[in-house]
Simulated scan of single mutants.
Amino acid sequence: MEVKQNAQGQSAETDAPPSTTADTIRLPERGFAIDRPKALIAAAMCWAGWAIMVWLVTTGRTLDIDQWVLLSFRTGEDLGLHGSERVLETVRDITALGGVFLRNLFALAAVVALLFLKLRREAVLYALTVASGWVANTGMKLLVGRERPEIVPHLTHAGGESFPSGHSFSAAVVYIGMAIAFAALSRRHSVRYTVIGFAMAVSALVAFSRVLLGVHFPSDVIAGWLGGAGWAFLAAALFYAPAKAAAESETVKKMDPSE
């Protein structure tokens, strides 16, 4: 309510919108809860796709299409990537988002940012998601195992087992898990779906870049991405209660830089 003087010099009250300044804006201390049933449904769909890919790969049903896709992006006698050097540089930049250094750097920055936003529950939940995802990815590689493709020249260094793609799995865990954590800042479903959808698209680009660089079969990256996305959604549901309890502990409160 705003007080103004009228023509006779008398005070009069007029309705006016309250002013909003940076000092009056407050972010939620805890954030809104995720929809765990929906997270479990999304996880089940991803894991079903992952299981199908494992069956297709272990029975040799993907070899022909894997080879065709790899060759379709190459040209010339040396089987170089279609496009200029700038295209190759862009693909390498995208694949770096799923590399050990950048993805862990972004994950650490996200945990710190969540703590500063007073979202301790989401910070703990995200940290558990990323840490357990690394264990899950290692187990998957040991479970299946596969040699890397030698159909086309590798355009970046890659080592270890080929199935599933570690870059694809880890990128999905880190970026989708990050989106799920920060989506707690909004109660609007449209905002949440947009943030998570964008993270899914970015992680899918990282997966696709591994095929363009010739270091993975398409079936490797599809399985890796499905497994990583499935793990991000599953962890968001399963680790919710432990993360909430840990966030309220004195140990985590002492680690909170916002305090």
Rank of each mutant, 00 (worst) to 15 (best):
3 V>G: 10
3 V>A: 11
3 V>S: 15
6 N>L: 12
8 Q>S: 11
8 Q>L: 14
8 Q>H: 07
10 Q>H: 06
11 S>I: 02
12 A>T: 15
12 A>P: 01
17 P>M: 10
18 P>T: 06
18 P>I: 09
18 P>F: 11
19 S>V: 14
20 T>N: 12
24 T>M: 06
25 I>M: 14
25 I>Y: 00
26 R>W: 03
28 P>R: 08
29 E>T: 08
32 F>N: 07
35 D>P: 08
35 D>K: 12
35 D>L: 10
36 R>Y: 00
36 R>M: 02
42 A>R: 08
43 A>S: 12
43 A>H: 01
43 A>D: 01
44 A>S: 12
45 M>P: 00
45 M>T: 15
47 W>E: 06
49 G>W: 07
49 G>S: 07
56 L>P: 00
59 T>V: 02
60 G>Q: 09
61 R>D: 01
61 R>M: 06
61 R>N: 09
61 R>C: 00
62 T>Q: 01
63 L>P: 04
68 W>H: 15
68 W>M: 10
73 F>T: 14
75 T>C: 08
75 T>L: 13
75 T>P: 10
76 G>C: 10
77 E>I: 03
81 L>N: 04
83 G>S: 07
83 G>R: 10
83 G>W: 13
85 E>W: 12
85 E>H: 15
86 R>Q: 14
86 R>T: 14
87 V>S: 03
88 L>P: 00
92 R>G: 05
93 D>C: 11
94 I>P: 05
95 T>E: 01
96 A>E: 09
100 V>D: 06
100 V>N: 12
101 F>T: 05
102 L>Q: 03
104 N>W: 00
105 L>F: 05
106 F>E: 00
107 A>D: 00
109 A>N: 01
111 V>Y: 08
112 V>I: 11
114 L>Y: 05
115 L>W: 08
115 L>A: 08
115 L>I: 10
117 L>W: 04
119 L>R: 12
123 A>G: 08
123 A>L: 07
124 V>L: 04
128 L>H: 09
128 L>K: 13
130 V>Y: 04
132 S>F: 05
133 G>L: 03
